[in-house]
């Protein structure tokens, strides 16, 4: 009935005030992020790690890989980094690429550089998939607890109570030992490890998301969306979620670091990815027997884990600073 006719009617109003120069959120984000040198360093190392893991996957897999991480040369065992191979004792196909053992060899004469490349991919996928699983569960559970939390299930138990008590129960278990138990019962495979790490680390995200939903749910723009008649589903995913995602992103970045650490720890204890597949954890674990004869076997994977985990943490903290609206106002 209210037929809106704008044309006859807009001359009444001057378009007040010129608009501020257009700057997208990404541009603003980048301007702020650039100022944080450590975070930039973290991002840089992260990209480097990502690329080397990706390239490493191609170079170390297949029937005749460029770098063969499983090739055993017993006559060349425990060679130090940058050692030249003894060409006279090797078959032509056993000669390492680049004619040098970049990171030395282990107790079976396997090229540590090739094994590190293969292990990088394991660390990367474990980190991302495990965190992906935990973030998905966390957002789902936290979203329900925050948005539908007031609904009563049975008498006095609300949805919120139920979900948050599950979170509390999960947090009661020392998670590393929980993972150890589960991994000991399940067949050892990289996928099981990803899933188990994911399923035991979603509680933090759930709490974050719930807290964000609780405060965002009371905001006027959500009330406006409700008044318009927007569906609950759309309110959750289009209106609230984009506003709640920032802390999740930050905790996910730091979560990747801790997932990589967990995987390395599991492999070190012998519960991780089964040999002959190399991971940084099991290179480290094998190397510990030769720590005085061949220290590079422990130091190379150890330092690699340190650098990657540190860079993720630095990047995550930089992200948190930038996404914090209070800092944004100052910028």
């Amino acid at each position: 009935m209210t037929n809106i006719q704008a044309k006859e009617f807009n001359q009444n109003f001057q378009f007040d005030q010129p608009l501020a120069p257009k700057r997208t959120r990404w541009e603003e984000f980048w301007l702020l992020f650039r100022q944080n040198r450590l975070a930039i360093l973290g991002l840089f190392i992260f990209i480097l790690f990502f690329l080397s893991a990706l390239i490493g996957l191609f170079l170390t897999s297949g029937t005749n890989p460029v770098f063969d991480p499983a090739l055993i040369r017993l006559q060349e065992k425990l060679r130090p980094p940058l050692a030249e191979p003894h060409l006279d004792s090797l078959q032509p196909e056993e000669v390492p690429r680049l004619d040098i053992y970049l990171m030395g060899t282990d107790d079976l004469g396997r090229d540590v550089f090739a094994r590190m490349l293969q292990g990088a991919w394991v660390s990367l996928t474990v980190g991302f998939v495990a965190v992906g699983i935990s973030v998905l569960i966390g957002i789902f559970m936290g979203g329900i607890a925050g948005y539908f939390g007031q609904h009563m299930l049975i008498n006095t138990i609300s949805v919120d109570t139920l979900i948050m008590r599950i979170v509390d129960i999960m947090l009661c278990f020392p998670s590393f030992f929980l993972i150890l138990t589960v991994v000991a019962l399940l067949p050892a495979s990289i996928y099981n490890i990803m899933i188990v790490i994911g399923l035991t680390s979603w509680m933090g995200t759930t709490r974050f998301v719930r807290a964000e939903f609780l405060s965002l749910r009371e905001q006027d723009f959500v009330a406006a969306a409700k008044a318009l008649g927007v569906s609950n589903f759309r309110i959750i995913f289009r209106h609230i979620m984009p506003n709640a995602i920032a802390p999740v992103l930050v905790s996910a970045t730091i979560g990747i670091a801790s997932a990589i650490l967990t995987e390395a720890g599991l492999s070190f204890l012998g519960f991780g990815v089964p040999p002959p597949h190399a991971t940084w954890g099991n290179i480290l674990s094998n190397g510990k027997n030769f720590i005085f004869d061949a220290p590079w076997l422990t130091f190379i994977p150890g330092i690699a884990i340190l650098i990657v985990v540190l860079s993720f943490n630095l990047f995550g903290e930089g992200l948190r600073d930038v996404l914090n609206p209070k800092l944004r106002e100052r910028g």
Partner: peptide
């Protein structure tokens, strides 16, 4: 409805 607070009534991410 038109709200009182012009800052909280619009979705900052839309």
């Amino acid at each position: 409805i038109v709200f009182q607070d012009p800052y909280g009534s619009l979705n900052p991410r839309m």
